[in-house]
Nucleic acid binder design. Structure first.
Lengths: 169, 169
DNA sequence: CTATTTGCAAATAATTTGCAGTGCG
DNA sequence: CGCACTGCAAATTATTTGCAAATAG
């Protein structure tokens, strides 16, 4: 799924800006790697970014993709999603948001919600340490998986409480 | 941090029970592997479980630990936490709960909260698919890290919005 | 007894690193 | 023009798998 033109331009703008301010060199591969993450609503892993960028910059190497993604992370331009199924995934949505995750295929979609963003954190939590941010992760079966699955049969072992994806590589 | 005696016994009870019902054999290593995860409030990774179990069952192998942890997961006896820093972590707390995660050292602590557990999920989310569960992850700097850090200097690059741990192996 | 389960060692997957050449500022 | 950046290949880390020996029920 594609990010809107205007939003994408804003992100690219911020990217150039941040690079300049941070004094990091603006290379072709960095631009394209950022563009790849910033232009999709999916949250791709390094391999997917690599495949996408290779079309435009045939010589990029996978390790440059990794290095750049972590560099973008260090600059605060992308955040990461713990690996749903093997590999780390990257997220260029800079606005406060939450995630919907399909427990079967690993699809992730962002959603915003003032209500959830202003969550009341129980006071007891303060005992653990400071609170910097809170994020909600909603798990479920996405449209497509629900369809595929019901085609087969009813429900199997699926509703294992809050378990992430244990995928079948 | 240790789980209370009574709670631990309940977990072990449920473990034996579930194994029997599922028809899986109750071996020494399985019992000790489960005990290791079930008796701590930390959420250890396979390697940590391995080290702990080895004291009591010197011949266990790391792969048995992996196989057993995933088997416990399949039986619904443990859930997983996306890798904070390299490796998958396992959680034997069967009650609905949320997580506090230290962005520096990766410490995880559970907390319960009726308010958060009854979260109102925005209707828009239904468009993505069904909703099975929702979990809140609160990020912050734990007590210990805050202390260690302030010993050095003030704040550095730390407050990178909602970024997980990019650790220094 | 006998199907499961285990331990070992070797295989895979994801990610990182050292180094020599290349190109941005 | 120099130092940060890149590509390559080799190294590491986490995790999985095939197989013969061990064991729970």
């Amino acid at each position: 799924m594609k990010v809107e033109e205007s939003e994408l331009n804003g992100r690219l703008e911020r990217f150039r800006d941040t690079c300049r301010k941070a004094g990091v060199k603006l290379t072709q591969q960095r631009l394209e790697i950022f563009r790849e993450v910033a232009s999709t609503l999916d949250h791709p892993d390094a391999e997917e970014v690599y495949r996408g960028v290779r079309d435009r910059v045939p010589t990029v190497s996978l390790d440059t993709v990794y290095r750049t993604l972590w560099m973008l992370h260090d600059l605060g331009l992308v955040s990461t999603l713990g690996p749903r199924g093997g590999s780390m995934r990257f997220d260029a949505n800079g606005n406060p948001h939450h995630h919907y995750v399909c427990v079967l295929c690993g699809l992730v979609r962002d959603f915003e919600s003032p209500a959830l963003s202003d969550l009341e954190i129980p006071r007891g939590v303060g005992a653990f340490g400071s609170v910097l941010a809170a994020r909600v992760e909603v798990r479920g079966l996405c449209r497509k998986c629900a369809k595929t699955r019901s085609a087969g049969r009813g429900s199997e072992s699926l509703i294992r409480p809050a378990s992430p994806i244990r995928d079948s590589r």
